[in-house]
Write a protein that binds this DNA or RNA. Structure first.
Length: 635
RNA sequence: GCCAAUGUGGCUCAGGGGUAGAGCAAUUCACUCGUAAUGAAUAGGUCGUGGGUUCGAUUCCCACCAUUGGCUCCA
């Protein structure tokens, strides 16, 4: 996602000359190659080509803004996954009405069918050009380009932008576009810099594709867990309890409980030992780990601010993670190499003082629950245990159905991090990262590299997931830590009688339950797989005279371990079905005279359809099979 | 924390300087019904909170709180 304003070194845009100006087929377009008038055909179904297309759309937007408000300063305007944006510096805030104006002006520019002209300038001339135009951000961008860089520009009519390209050949190509939102964004992504105004938009070669995209977006939003999770009574929030502190309602709590029991059993079956450690501790504990120095702003520290730094006063903080607590288990007595690996797990509540603008439904909260593990290891166990952790995570994610949409990120340190984020030496970091890289490559894990995404104590494999708005967060993380054991004085006696410092893997098996529940609600549009659904079946008596039998059936199924309710209101069967369906109960058991007489239930299922009348035991057997196999359906 | 939008009964929304209205939901009554809404009646809101302007504010202004989309952050 390079900003438009970089000069470039190479390209992958092919070598064809003098291709026709308008190509055949609606998804094929002629692009202008960055090094001059060389053109090549590209395909909108190709991600790189789409970016080229939308990059031109962002230039058109910038041109429109400059026409409407010439005093506006331009920052950067790249194409992104589903569209583009441009950052502007303008005293007055853009309004929704302004977006309409900009769109109108953009339409004009498209109609003008302005060709994009490529040219290069020597550094000094480029600088002077932008300086004269008052484009202070562009001047900064030019100054930051490496010496050997080619400084290139694209001109379309009355508008010229510093840009490495490539672009489509003419503004006339951008047939369909829409500006979608306005947001604040810091210049160069640094919160110390001025906040600019970012306008997001998207563009397509024709109106039909644009409409299809916008419709799809609307459809996705209908799955928003923050909406249906509240409607379906999984959770709610209360103003006077506070941001990021959701109330998990009975349905949400049941699903989380089912998942938690499953995970804890799974962990136990894989050789983990459960611990129960305190939810808060004196600041001393966090000082050893480094959390007090690195993440104090992110912690809930108790007591007066003045006392927090007063060593003569006792000061407690809620835990933002479990690691230093679980290390005390290892430290409880002297350990031998024979004690390792020691696999400690705990389903913890964690508390993190997120910035106020960060909270989002159940995905980003201030108190959450996580099944954490800390594996304390000898060096020779690192690889196999890492594999074990990854295997566990993949098994878990696959079982709940989220794995197929996950991406893997190898999160590394950035030695140049200006905020002094990382602890440890260059050697330690390189060793940890080399080790993790080797393990990942051995396992054939396909990953992206995230520079400056590591924990302060080590590199991470982050398993990422996107919500319905396309926003990505970490679902599961597996981290190699070669620093903290030493800080806490953790040692084991090796076979040769010498003391050694162990390695530690920090890992989660199912990320945090609140976040996972959110993703599951979105993935299944509320129709959670039956094994984890709060209400697995609802019994619907046709009339009041069938209520006794309904409860008989409920009693039987409940005793078998199923979660079943009875709708005993004096309503018509149609209404009961409608409401149960809206509440996304998968199995509806209608009981009337026939069923009472036959000791059956008439089963109407969300996915299997009408299953006819079944003896209660037969239905129970089917349901058991579905639950045991953790069957899931695409929605 | 920063930029912006939003905040009217449980939900979806209308209204608007003279103390509020609809549909759904809820409650009550009648109906006892065979696969996506039976009917009638009743009740429910100091219009997010606190200040200010005004004879008078839910409506205008300010601050705060919460929600939403971004940015930054995310052990």
């Amino acid at each position: 996602m390079e900003p438009c304003s970089h000069a470039s070194q190479s390209n992958t845009w092919g070598m064809a000359f003098n291709m026709p100006r308008r190509s055949q087929g609606r998804t094929r377009y002629v692009l202008q190659k960055i090094t001059g008038g060389i053109c090549v055909m590209v395909d909108f179904s190709n991600a790189e080509d789409r970016k080229c297309f939308r990059h031109t759309a962002s230039h058109i937007m910038a041109q429109a803004v400059k026409r409407l408000w010439p005093e506006t300063k331009l920052a950067i305007g790249p194409a992104i996954d589903d569209g583009f944006y441009y950052d502007f510096d303008r005293d007055e805030a853009f309004s929704e009405a302004d977006l309409k104006k900009i769109e109108e002006e953009m339409k004009k520019i498209v109609k003008e069918d302005l060709p994009l002209e490529y040219y290069e300038l020597p550094r000094e001339e480029a600088r002077k050009f932008m300086e004269e135009k008052g484009e202070i951000y562009k001047v900064q961008l030019i100054d930051d380009l490496p010496d050997e860089a080619t400084i290139s520009f694209y001109k379309q009519g009355d508008f010229t932008d510093l840009c490495k390209g490539p672009h489509v050949e003419s503004t006339g190509e951008i047939k369909a576009f829409k500006l979608t939102s306005i947001a604040g964004a810091y210049w160069r992504g640094d919160s110390k810099n001025k906040m600019l105004q970012r306008i997001y938009g998207t563009a397509f070669p024709d109106k039909a594709q644009l409409k299809e995209y916008l419709d799809k977006l609307e459809e996705a939003k209908k799955r928003d867990h923050n909406k249906i999770g509240r409607e379906l009574e999984y959770f709610t929030t209360v103003d006077y309890i506070g941001q990021g502190l959701p109330i998990i309602l009975p349905k949400g709590a049941k699903t989380i409980q089912v998942m938690q029991r499953w995970i804890e059993d799974l962990e136990a079956s894989r050789g983990c030992e459960l611990t129960m450690t305190p939810y808060f501790a004196k600041r001393d504990l966090y000082k050893i780990s480094g959390h007090w120095d690195h993440y104090r702003d992110g912690m809930f520290v108790m007591g007066d601010k003045a006392d927090q730094d007063d060593e003569t006063k006792e000061c407690f903080a809620l835990r933002p993670m479990t690691c230093p607590f679980q290390y005390q288990v290892f430290l409880n007595r002297q350990r031998s190499y024979r004690d390792l690996p020691m696999r400690l797990t705990e389903t913890s509540k964690l508390f993190r003082n997120e910035d106020s603008g960060e909270m989002h439904g159940l995905i980003r909260v201030r108190q959450f629950t996580i099944s954490e593990g800390h594996y304390i290891l000898r060096p020779d166990q690192l690889e196999s245990e890492f594999k074990e952790c990854l295997d566990l995570a993949k098994y878990v994610l696959d079982t709940v159905g989220l794995l197929e949409d996950c991406t893997f990120r190898f999160s590394q340190w950035d030695p140049a991090n200006p905020k002094n984020k990382y602890e440890g030496t260059k050697e330690q970091w390189e060793k940890a990262q080399d080790t993790m890289g080797k393990i990942l490559d051995d396992l054939g894990v396909k990953y992206d590299i995230g520079i400056d995404e590591a924990a302060f104590y080590g590199p991470k494999l982050d398993i990422q997931y996107k919500n319905v708005f396309g926003k990505e967060d970490t679902l599961v993380t597996i981290q190699i830590d070669m620093l903290l054991a030493e800080k806490y004085g953790m040692e084991y006696v090796d076979a040769d009688g010498t003391k050694k410092t162990p390695y530690i893997i920090h890992r989660t098996s199912l990320g945090c339950y609140e976040r996972t529940l959110a993703y599951l609600i979105e993935k299944y549009a509320g129709w959670l797989p039956v094994w984890m659904a709060a209400e697995q079946a609802r019994i619907l008596p046709i009339s009041d005279s069938h209520i006794d039998y309904a409860y008989e059936v409920k009693d039987k199924l409940t005793k078998m371990g199923f979660r079943v309710e009875v709708d005993d209101r004096s309503e018509k069967i149609g209404k009961k079905i409608r409401e149960a369906t809206k509440e996304k109960v998968q199995y509806l058991l209608v009981v009337g005279d026939q069923e009472v007489a036959d000791k059956t239930v008439a089963v109407r299922a969300r996915f299997e359809g009408d299953m006819g009348s079944l003896p209660v035991d037969d239905f129970a057997a089917k349901l058991k099979e579905i639950v045991d196999n953790k069957v899931r359906h695409e929605v």
